[in-house]
Computed example of a mutant assay.
Amino acid sequence: MEFPERFSNLPAYAFPRLRDLLDVHEPGGPPVHMTIGEPKHAFPAWITDEIIANAAGFNSYPPNEGSAALRGAIADWVARRYGVALDAETEVMVLNGTREGLYNAAMALCPETKNGKVPIILCPNPFYQVYMIAAISVGAEARFVPATGQSGHLPDYASLPADVLNRTAIAYICSPANPQGAVATKTYWQDLIALAEQYDFKIFADECYSEIYRDTPPTGALEVAREMGADPDRVVIFHSLSKRSNLPGLRSGFIAGGAETIRRTKMLRAYAGTPLPTPLQAAAAKVWADEAHVIENRRLYGEKYVIADEILGNVPGYMSPEAGFFLWLPVEDGEQAALKLWKETGVRVLPGAYLSQDAGGENPGKGYIRVAMVAPKDEMARGLITLRDCLFA
Rank of each mutant, 00 (worst) to 15 (best):
P316N: 13
P316K: 12
P316I: 13
P316E: 15
G317C: 14
Y318Q: 08
M319Y: 13
M319K: 11
M319G: 09
M319C: 12
S320N: 11
P321D: 12
P321R: 09
P321G: 11
E322V: 06
E322I: 04
E322W: 11
E322T: 06
E322Q: 13
E322R: 06
A323D: 08
A323W: 13
A323E: 08
A323P: 07
A323K: 06
G324F: 14
F325K: 00
F325P: 01
F326T: 07
F326V: 07
F326M: 14
F326H: 14
F326K: 05
F326S: 12
F326G: 09
L327T: 11
L327I: 14
L327P: 04
L327Y: 14
W328A: 10
W328H: 14
L329S: 12
L329E: 13
L329V: 15
P330H: 14
V331Q: 09
E332M: 07
D333N: 15
D333Q: 12
D333I: 00
D333F: 01
D333H: 15
G334F: 14
G334P: 08
E335S: 10
E335Y: 03
Q336L: 15
Q336N: 12
A337R: 07
A337V: 00
A337H: 06
A338S: 13
A338V: 02
A338K: 07
K340H: 07
K340A: 00
K340M: 07
K340Q: 03
L341C: 08
W342F: 10
W342D: 00
K343T: 11
K343L: 06
E344D: 11
E344M: 06
T345Y: 12
T345V: 08
T345I: 08
G346R: 07
G346A: 09
G346Q: 09
G346D: 11
G346P: 10
V347S: 06
R348A: 13
R348S: 13
R348E: 15
R348M: 15
V349N: 11
P351V: 11
G352I: 00
G352M: 08
G352L: 08
A353H: 10
A353V: 07
Y354W: 13
L355E: 02
L355I: 03
S356I: 04
Q357P: 02
D358Q: 07
G360I: 00
G360T: 09
G360C: 05
G360E: 12
G360N: 14
G361P: 03
E362A: 10
N363M: 07
N363V: 05
P364G: 02
P364L: 01
P364A: 01
G365W: 02
K366H: 14
K366D: 12
K366R: 15
G367P: 05
I369C: 01
I369F: 01
I369M: 02
R370A: 13
R370D: 04
R370Q: 08
R370I: 01
V371H: 01
A372D: 06
A372H: 04
A372K: 02
M373E: 05
A375G: 02
A375W: 02
A375F: 02
P376E: 06
K377F: 13
K377R: 09
E379C: 00
E379M: 02
M380S: 03
A381P: 03
A381F: 12
R382T: 02
R382N: 03
R382M: 01
R382F: 01
G383A: 03
G383H: 04
G383N: 03
G383C: 03
